[in-house]
Structures are given as C-alpha cells and as structure tokens.
Design a protein around this nucleic acid. Structure first.
Lengths: 371, 371
DNA sequence: GCCGGCCATGTGAGCGATAACAATCGCGCC
DNA sequence: GGCGCGATTGTTATCGCTCACATGGCCGGC
C-alpha cells in the first residue's frame, strides 16, 4: 500500500520562504527545504518485497526470481533510488574509493599519472580522493596519508617522484594498502614505475648507434629519483660502449634550464649528440642551438624524454622517450586493488617499459664532425 | 610483536599463508590478518565514561568537565583512536567531502584551479574527490556529476572553461549544491571566475597607453569561454580608444599556435603590439619574432595571459596578466560551502580580479614605427 | 527549605545499508 | 509418499556514530 491516498490538501504551510514541503507517504516527516530522497525501505515497500531482496537485486543478484527482480528494478526507477554509499561502506568496510597523494605541480609526468589513475579507478568503479602537497618530504607524505585515511579510503597511491618522499613512505603504518607510483623505497612497499633505466639506455644507445662518439646529458634535478636513474643509465650505456663520459649538466626540468645549460653545449663544436632528461629542457636546448646557428639534426642530434603532446610539433619534431602514464596509472591501480583484496601489503615492483619514439631531431653525425 | 626473539628457524607456516593471527584483548575475536581498530566504545570504556561523552569531547566539546575531557583525550591517544568518518557522515548527512569535475588536461589554468580548490578545502577540513573528463559536454558533465553524487559528496565544483559544459550544468538536478568555476551559465548556477574582460582590457590598454596605435590579438580556441571573453574585451577596448581593430588570430593555447600564427605578425612591420591569450602562445610568438629578427620589446611589444611560473624567465621576461588560481579556488570553495550550509543553490556570480604584471616585453613603439 | 534551571552526563533510537541465519516452497528420488 | 536439498525470500543483528531526550546534582532566589 504505497500511498494509497494522496490528500489534495497537503498539511503544510506552503511557506515563508517559497519552498514547498512535500507531503510524504508513510510515517516519515519531512524536513522542510530538504527534499527527502528515497531509501531502500521505500523501494522494498513499493515493490512489495523485503529490504533484503532489494539489496540482493542491487548486489549479488543471485537467487532472485526474474519477476521479482523486475518489480524491484521498476520501483528503483520510479523512486529514482540510489543506494547510499556511506551506509554500504559502513557495513561492508569498503568505501570503493582510493586516495592519491600528488605533488601540487603541473609537471607533465605527475599530472598525467594522476589522470591515468583516475581513469583506471573509474573503469573499475572506484572513486578517488586527492591530497596535493607542495613539497614531498617525510612529514608532508605522512600527513597527507593521514588525511586520506580520515576519508575512509580503501587504499592509497603515492605519486612520489622525489627522494624525500621515500622516507615518509617507509614510516607509514602498515595497516593500509599502499602503492608508491613513479618511485619508492626498495623494500616493504609496492612500487610501480616506468623503467627509467631502460628509457635512458634507449635514448643513449640510439644516439651511439647513429654513429655519435659520445652523448651529452642535460639531467633533471637530482632530488628526483627519475633524474638520477636516467643519469646512471646514460653513464652506464656510454661506458658499456667504451665512449667517453662527458660531465653531466644538471637542470630543473624547465625549458629555461635547457636553454641556459644548452648555451655551453651550443658553443662546443665537439658536441654532436645530446640527451635531455625531459622534453621542455629539450625545447630550450633546441632554441639555443638554433640561435647559435647549429642545425638539428644536421649538426646536433637531440633526444628528449616524456613525449609531451607538443613534442611532435617542435622544430624539428622531437625524437623522445615515451612514458605511458595511462598504463602507469592502470598498473598502479590494479596492484593496489590486489593489496586491498588480499588485505596485505605487497612489495612487488612493477616496471612499465618506456618506448623510443624516433622523429626528426636525430641523425648520424655530419662528416666533418667525425673528421 | 616485532620479533623480540629472532629464532633461527621461524615457524614459517603458522597458517597456510604466512599471516599471523594476533590475539586481542577482551571479548572481541579477531579476523586473522586484519588488525582491529578501536572504536568510540573502546575509548568510552577506557575513559570510564559513556560513548556520548566521548562524542561530545570530539565534537562540540561544550558541557564537558575539563577533567573528563582530559581523561577522554588520554584514552583516545592510548588507543590511537580515529573517528570513523563513514559512520559520522551516515548519521549527520554530511561527508565533509567535495567533488570536483575537472578536464583531463595539464593546461595551466584548470590544473592550477584544481590545486587551489584542494588547498582551500583542505584548510577547511574538507576532502575532495575528483572526476576527470576528456571532453566537456553535456553528457560528460552529467555523468561526472552523477558519479560524484554516488560518492556522497556534500557539493560539487565543476571546472568548466568550455561552452559545451554549460549545457550539462544547466540540466543538473537542483538538489545538490554546485558551483561552476571559470565559467558557467548566466543564470541558475553560482559561478566563480576570473574577470576575463578586465584582464584583456588591462593588457590591451597597457599597450595602447604605451603609444601603440593598435594591438593584435592571438586568441584561444573559441570553444573556451575565456577565449571569447578576452576577444570581446580586447575588441571593445580598441574601439573605445578609437583604434583600428585588426583581424583576430585564433590559436589553441599551444606554443606552436603562437609560433605559427605569429609568423604572419612577424612578417608585418605594421605590427608593433600583440596581446596573446595565454603565455605559451606568447612564448611561441616570442620565438618566431626572434627568428624574424624583430626585437622584443624594441620592435614589438607583447603581453601574455596567465603568468605561468616560467613567464618571468622568458627572453625577455614576459609582461602578462596574472590569474590568481589559488584565490579562484578559495572563492569557489567558500561559495560552495555557503550553498551547502544554507541548503540551497545560489546563483551568485563572483569575479576574481586579474592583475597586470609588467615585465620587460612591453615598451613604447620605436620612433620609426610611428613615423 | 523548596523549586526552577543550568551543568554534566547517560540512555535509547536511529542513520541506511549488508550479513548471517531462518523460514518457506517445490521438486526429485528412493 | 516422505525426505532432503536448492531456490527464494524474510528476519534480526550490526556497522560506528550522533541526536533527542532523560537524569541527577548543584546553585541561587524567595
């Protein structure tokens, strides 16, 4: 008997504030001004079944007669019912939401990773809460994680490209599923990252194989783990090839750094191949080389890193190492999901392979350069 | 027990899966593998008070004897108790979390706004959940909002710089507090945005006042509301000053667009002043001007928009219009909070004033240009 | 000296869902 | 033809907290 009678005269003072309080069926009174949303009991009543049956239709959905299910679903539709996620989470102990700790930056890598995670989570029906930090260090990571726990997330992803973050991650209480993305401690925590070593090796080898005698490197700031790994791989690749290892130039990821550090390279005719640790720095370098009258790739070959969307529009289109941040997000998410389901920390390391994208900024050295 | 004794022969499988079940105190049985966390009742028991008193200490905190409060807080500390936000939200109807719909982009504006919101929310004790969309249109906005509602957010912020998004926003059910950020419909929804009209006027007037006869404009893509507004204000400012209105050049926010469209400007000696609708396009223009041998600001003056962090490192440092995205986030957040507290939609428009930052890319026109 | 009223605290009832178990029905099988 | 079992559905307890109201002590005022 769902509202058998609808009285034509709702017993409501139709208001001092223009809002209409709606007379509701049954015994529930209505807070004026707040539209009452239907709950599972309403659906049950309307469908003429028990609340548990409604729950069954909405969840496992086994052991329900098709006819019953149809009636329930119809009631759901009529009432525009949506399950209250809080109530569900309270009783199941699962909120189906994840926390992400992210650097407050518009740097391409961290920002893209965030979106990659969001997309993967979305597809699996998870929501994500983010906490951004201005700097990554022990305390900021700890307090960010604490805030996320207060939001009842099922698990946490820390986008932690910087070394300092590692100290925080290591000290986290082990009772929350957690995965470190882009970098992390060697032990005790699951880590998903792009294989920086491979990426830098691909870049460096590509240039060596084109015939360059050695490769210069404009690196990222050494507080970024990735920057260090790229330096190490670049150096190892040169050494393995018996090539001379030039001094490393430390930048800060910005185009400006590429420009300024690049000025020294542009002035040195010995320099025929450069590997820049990210695309913006490659862009800066591109510019200073141009200003110095050194053609790319004729006089100098250049490889970047990241494959930002604009890279193929650089002049010339940039050969670079692509990092698949969507894949990174996907893998991080599934690893975290696994931890959540097994109920224990994992300490797996997942490596995502980067890919060399050859465009037009690399070529064999000019003949005079060899002479 | 953190290995008080390290037996040389750890009894490895004391379960079948290596997990150790910890014996807990009291009558509660323990799910093996999952550490039980303390709840409010535990605190109450330990402090020798009722659960309600614990609740009072943790919330309103009025009407509690200092001595009692101290005892409760001590118990909280001892048990490392944290209130379960789900239970609280279930009963209060407030989750203290906000939803943000954001464009899946690393564009400086939307990305910074997101962080601005996060920071403001954080300071007020709110968490944020994000949903990112690849494109903004009616359906994507609607489904994003729907997803956020399923996460039990108290209110929603839509970062909606594109026109298409407006259609979605207008169709949203009015029963959830919502604020549109950066743009929105004219009516029915609260909107917080930077005053684009003022910004473009500042830029254009600055150039006119330096003595330039007119100002060219490299605009953003017209599906962005901001782009249109900047065009309109630029045009109006020129007209008000009696200056000729040159044809507008439509870009896509990228440095590349600035470069390519700029080529035409660089070739035209009549062009002495350009207003670029964002900093990256200004950067591209800067480059093509340089390549064409036209000096900035001696031959051509240039104003950007956004004040990205690198703008002061451009060559020359860029005069630009700063948008305070942190402020934008703060204002959006407080407006939303107000809606939440009053329980009804507002349709206020809040404008955040941009600011002209004069650096070294603008100067009076060269004398020969006037002649 | 009694009573109203405020302070400090406790009690019981939900919030809206799921979990665990109980109950009912019909059917196949010996 | 009775028994047992699976398919369906209902009942009750519970998740961890806050709300509304009840209670009991202590104070001041007449």
């Amino acid at each position: 008997m769902t509202s058998a009678l609808i009285s034509p005269e709702p017993d409501v003072h139709d208001g001092e504030d223009g809002q209409t309080a709606v007379a509701e069926l049954g015994q529930t009174t209505v807070t004026p001004g707040r539209r009452r949303v239907s709950v599972m009991a309403d659906v049950a009543r309307l469908a003429g079944v028990s609340q548990q049956t409604v729950s069954r239709v909405l969840n496992d959905s086994t052991h329900v007669r098709p006819q019953t299910r149809a009636r329930v679903l119809e009631a759901v539709r009529l009432l525009d019912y949506r399950p209250n996620p809080l109530a569900r989470a309270l009783v199941t102990g699962r909120s189906r939401s994840l926390g992400v700790v992210s650097l407050e930056t518009t740097l391409f890598g961290p920002a893209s990773t965030l979106f990659g995670i969001e997309r993967a989570a979305h597809e699996a029906g998870y929501g994500i809460s983010i906490v951004s930090v201005v700097t990554l260090n022990r305390d900021s990571v700890l307090s960010a994680v604490e805030r996320l726990r207060r939001q009842a997330v099922d698990g946490i992803l820390v986008i932690a490209p910087q070394r300092e973050a590692v100290h925080g991650i290591q000290q986290l209480p082990p009772d929350v599923p957690l995965v470190s993305v882009e970098a992390g401690p060697d032990e005790g925590v699951a880590v998903v990252h792009v294989d920086q070593f491979l990426g830098a090796e691909l870049a460096t080898r590509h240039l060596l194989e084109l015939g360059h005698r050695t490769v210069w490197h404009i690196a990222g700031p050494p507080d970024f783990i990735e920057a260090r790994q790229r330096i190490a791989a670049w150096r190892a690749t040169l050494e393995a090839a018996g090539a001379r290892v030039p001094p490393v130039l430390l930048g800060d990821w910005s185009a400006r750094a590429g420009y300024e550090l690049g000025a020294r390279l542009a002035a040195d005719p010995e320099v025929t191949a450069v590997f820049a640790a990210n695309d913006p720095m490659a862009l800066g370098l591109l510019r200073v080389l141009h200003e110095a009258g050194r053609r790319v790739p004729d006089d100098v070959s250049l490889v970047g890193f990241d494959d930002v969307p604009e890279a193929s529009y650089f002049a010339p289109p940039l050969t670079t190492v692509r990092q698949d941040f969507m894949e990174l997000g996907r893998r991080s998410f599934s690893l975290l999901l696994e931890e959540i389901e097994r109920g224990m920390r994992s300490s797996t390391h997942v490596r995502v392979a980067p890919e060399l994208v050859v465009r037009e900024s690399t070529a064999p050295p000019a003949v005079r350069a060899r002479a």
